[in-house]
Simulated scan of single mutants.
Amino acid sequence: MATNKVVLIEDSPVALEILQRLLNSSPDVDVVGVARDGAEGLEVITKTKPDVICTDFMMENMDGLELTKRVMADDPRPILVISNFVQKTDVDNVFRLLQAGAADVFPKPTTDSPTDYERLKSSLVAKIKVLSSMKVTARRSQQPLSGSVKPITSGAFSGTQPLMRNVSSRVKVIAIGASTGGLQSIQKILGQLPSNFPLPIICTVHVSTGVLSGLVNWLSSECPLKVKIAEVGETPAPGTVYFAPEKCDLEVDFRGKFIYSNCPVENKHCPSINVAFKSLAQFYGKAMAGVLLTGLGRDGAEGLQAIVQAGGITVAQDEKGGGAFGMVKEAITMEAVQQVLTIEKIAPFLLKTLSE
């Protein structure tokens, strides 16, 4: 089995040594180069052609944000930012990194204890394995971001998209499930939907603890819909995108209102796509559509099957779109996928479904 080639860029000698030893201890990862800052990192990346770039954020000479911009403009590759500065209190940092094209962020342990890093090894290696199979495209320089101004991007609503009127569809809710690296894919889907999209969209995503608020902030600037974390007791409203909270499963009760539930110890992912899909299928039945994006593992397959069994509509991202195909492949094996589409065609399919 081919290993995933990684370049590590980290200005702390201790953290660099620990990360290098940690990743090289996995049979699935091969650290092919290291660097102490972004400028040196660009040279190493050019020489080694890695599958994934793992970089710190705050560094001298060239920080992780500038490195991300340079790589995504000239030689796009999946970038995982591993840093102390992508925690819950660092919303702006997460926002800018995702805007620049970083595939995901991963909060670094608060200390340089090898034990703390070892505790995160499995989730870090899992992210690298998923990101190594992602296909990323070049991003040219973008206008500076302001905390008070939402930029208009190529994917965001610019007033030229047709508004939706006289919609009468049996579908009343859309659920989306995504794994590591799926943040950009969700943005592509949401960015194609009009501002008066008539249904609620409920998303369950495997992201590192502490980055959800940054993700919501970023998506709010990238799409015309309202984006927020689902709150207990809320009823899903049209034109709003809801995200499952961190460290809890998101479900709906018998009234259709959001509730949080504790994640079972045996569940690898929290929040779980399966849990959300099954709960929504039980309440909405045939009046829902489920979208499963590529990712590693099996989460989402059983949930998509529950939607099919309830009479709903199911869509999955095709293998050519990049990313590990495990979740979708499992769903296809279970005959839970009705439509397999490229990421660019998922939003048009949903819009067409609502107009039928």
Rank of each mutant, 00 (worst) to 15 (best):
P76W: 01
P76E: 11
P76C: 03
P76I: 09
R77V: 13
P78T: 06
P78M: 11
P78G: 07
P78V: 02
I79T: 02
I79N: 12
I79F: 03
I79E: 02
L80Y: 11
L80F: 02
L80E: 00
V81L: 04
V81T: 12
V81W: 07
V81R: 09
V81G: 10
I82K: 05
I82L: 11
S83V: 02
S83W: 01
S83H: 11
S83Y: 07
N84Q: 15
N84A: 10
N84L: 10
N84R: 09
F85L: 12
V86R: 15
V86T: 14
V86G: 10
V86C: 04
Q87L: 11
Q87Y: 05
Q87V: 00
K88P: 10
K88F: 12
K88R: 14
T89A: 02
T89H: 15
D90Y: 13
D90H: 03
D90N: 15
D90K: 01
D90G: 04
V91Q: 06
V91M: 08
V91F: 01
V91G: 11
V91Y: 12
V91D: 07
D92K: 14
D92V: 13
N93E: 09
N93T: 05
V94K: 11
V94Y: 05
F95T: 03
F95R: 12
F95Q: 13
F95K: 14
F95C: 13
R96L: 08
R96F: 04
R96A: 14
L97G: 00
L97R: 03
L97N: 03
L98Q: 08
L98H: 00
L98E: 05
L98D: 11
L98G: 05
L98A: 01
Q99R: 02
Q99C: 02
Q99H: 15
Q99P: 01
Q99A: 03
Q99G: 09
A100W: 04
A100N: 01
A100C: 02
A100M: 03
A100T: 00
A100E: 01
G101Q: 04
G101S: 05
G101F: 02
G101I: 00
A102W: 04
A102C: 05
A102D: 08
A102Y: 00
A103K: 06
A103H: 00
A103L: 04
D104G: 08
D104H: 10
D104P: 07
D104E: 14
D104I: 10
D104M: 00
V105F: 07
V105Q: 07
V105L: 06
V105C: 02
V105K: 07
F106G: 05
F106W: 11
P107V: 07
P107E: 10
K108G: 12
P109I: 01
P109M: 00
P109N: 13
T110C: 06
T110A: 08
T110M: 15
T110N: 04
T110F: 05
T110D: 15
T110L: 13
T110Y: 10
T111A: 04
T111I: 10
T111W: 01
D112G: 06
D112Q: 15
D112S: 11
D112H: 14
D112P: 09
S113N: 13
P114I: 05
P114L: 07
P114N: 04
P114T: 12
T115S: 03
